[in-house]
Design a protein around this nucleic acid. Structure first.
Lengths: 340, 340
DNA sequence: AACGGTACCGGTAACGTTGCCGGTTTTCCC
DNA sequence: GGGAAAACCGGCAACGTTACCGGTACCGTT
């Protein structure tokens, strides 16, 4: 009820004009030392805080970044922390919205954030998203935007991601080197670039080592433990079943592991397994599961930095692409040869 | 660069006044049908969106809720999803800030959100926070606030949480029923009510069953896997070592598990273990670990609902306390008697 | 013909802030 | 001691919106 003091209150109490108060608080030029001192002391006494709404209205910027993520699982919440870290430092506040992998929700989120007049967007698209009109609408308004993690070729925007192809390649080549011959892949939804790229890496590794691709060993399913479980069961009842599985996420690796165990097969002897993300859980299960790590926190920080750059520079940065290297961590689930 | 159209543009194009346009868009009263139709059609053509900043400035509300959480681990991110769900439905946008369990960061977050002129706060305090002045400052400004999950008696505010004491009690009594005699507890920081309450439940269960409390079996450490690991190691080298451990979080349970395994002890035979939170990981490790589940998503939803209520009702709700029941899930780590 | 009511519309002020411009006072210099 | 520059300050408009008030035109009633 006791309304916060405004610049006007200060002006009135000191019998000076609002303009002078305004100047005293900011520029410090064109204002007498005594006056300034008086203003500042009154500011402190009343605990005056400038009304950001009024400032935003006037300056047409809110110092707020809208962040849209499909979920807040381990990897993304690390990335968000990285974004948060840098944004806060730079004086921005972050609005985080989860699309819950839903296309409709993602549209709603963008609309809401647009209404909130955020200064820009940092986006990782949902798995369901095939149509990017809502995001292009942002670009048409010439609102700065950076996409991260889940990037897509359909969007011409500065982006930050890991080298997914390399990750898939590392994982697959490692399995090959361990002597696995029939390597299956549990890929994600076909429209997700992140999934396709990891599969490209898988294919490239096979090709490099002269292994023929068997379409039956390529399964697509949702980023989801249960789906992965069922998909793996299907794989394991094939007459020529795979002797290794590369899953493009750890959740899926867990699902695969459960199916493998249920079937009574042993890792790494009967079947090898490599996941993607390197969630901490992987070193806790038995056997421990190999996985491709991505530097999530770092990636978040880089994303925010790129965003802030693209805010300030006003040249076109839509071609900028930052790509971080993933790293394979080898654990029990895929190591059937002794270390050299 | 093409600035978004304002009510003024519409007025000018239609040769009517801004007032009329404003009315046409909202009330619909006091405006001719034809005029209204013309306005609405132009609104659609220009894709006019009211400027929320101007609205907020005028109406003194931003339709934004500030949410401060200590982290975004499994439980909290579920809760946040619940909050998000309900808030979005009710037309609010949510600003999520992580304090990273840091007191300083929490203060910074509250300040930032206060500056952003959020309509209210939903807070779960950091583990470091012992001084609540920054939060009381919010209350002094009579800004609506609900605390959840990590509530504290130092704050008189509407709150939503689970019955932590009951959770601690269930876990401990279960261990007692399984025949464990020397039950240790890995508690969290002493200033965290959530920790103390779970410990109260632990003590109550011991008392009920006539077991004397051994202060050596009560350890305090950070909510952290590593600390729990070391604390457990200490416990296990005592001459009269405990035969069961109750940890007040699952992260700590994992730490304890690792220490137990390293020491070569078996669960549940040599030592029993029960955690708290029921993270999915617990059914994946070996042995599977018992834990007290809390209905996180539901709790988030209830929190947001309570917040919205307390927004609209303007009577004092600081005494309102919603308490949800936790539920113990028994798994291998603590079940050494056969099921009856 | 005079009056009251209704339907419709426009102008103004206000939310809190700052940039710009113009004005007054002080200071300084020759 | 006169003029110019510097120091200092206030008024106005504007950002986009709406609440409030006042005004006009038209209708029907007596």
């Amino acid at each position: 009820m006791t309304k916060p003091p405004t610049i006007k209150d200060i002006a009135r109490q000191l019998n000076i004009s609002v303009s002078t108060v305004s100047r005293a608080i900011r520029n410090a030029s064109d204002v007498n030392k005594e006056t300034k001192k008086a203003v500042i002391s009154l500011v402190e006494e009343l605990n005056y805080q400038p009304n950001q709404l009024a400032l935003s209205l006037r300056n047409k910027q809110t110092h707020t970044i809208g962040v849209i993520v499909p979920n807040l699982d381990y990897v993304l919440s690390m990335m968000v922390r990285g974004i948060d870290e840098v944004a806060l430092e730079a004086g921005y506040t972050v609005m985080i919205c989860q699309s819950n992998e839903s296309f409709g929700r993602e549209i709603l989120n963008t609309r809401r954030l647009l209404e909130s007049l955020v200064d820009g967007f940092i986006i990782s698209v949902s798995a369901e998203t095939k149509n990017f009109d809502h995001i292009k609408k942002i670009q048409e308004k010439e609102i700065p935007m950076v996409v991260f993690d889940r990037v897509t070729p359909h969007l011409k925007a500065p982006s930050v991601r890991i080298d997914n192809e390399d990750g898939g390649f590392q994982a697959t080549e490692h399995l090959i080197e361990q002597g696995y011959k029939r390597i299956a892949i549990l890929a994600g939804p076909k429209n997700l670039d992140i999934s396709n790229k990891r599969m490209d890496g898988y294919l490239a590794a096979l090709k490099k080592h002269g292994i023929k691709v068997d379409q039956n060993l390529i399964m697509h399913c949702d980023f989801n433990q249960d789906y992965a479980f069922f998909a793996t069961q299907e794989l394991l009842v094939m007459k020529k079943r795979p002797d290794a599985i590369f899953t493009i996420s750890d959740r899926m690796a867990i699902g695969a592991m459960l199916a493998i165990k249920k079937k009574g097969l042993n890792m790494p002897e009967d079947i090898g397994l490599v996941g993607f993300n390197d969630e901490p859980i992987l070193s806790l299960v038995s056997p421990t599961i190999s996985s491709v790590e991505q530097p999530s926190f770092e990636l978040g920080k880089i994303t925010a930095k790129l965003f802030i750059e693209s805010m300030h520079d006003n040249e076109d940065m839509s071609h900028v692409e930052k790509i971080l290297k993933p790293k394979l961590y080898i654990r029990e689930s895929s190591q059937r040869l002794l270390k050299k």
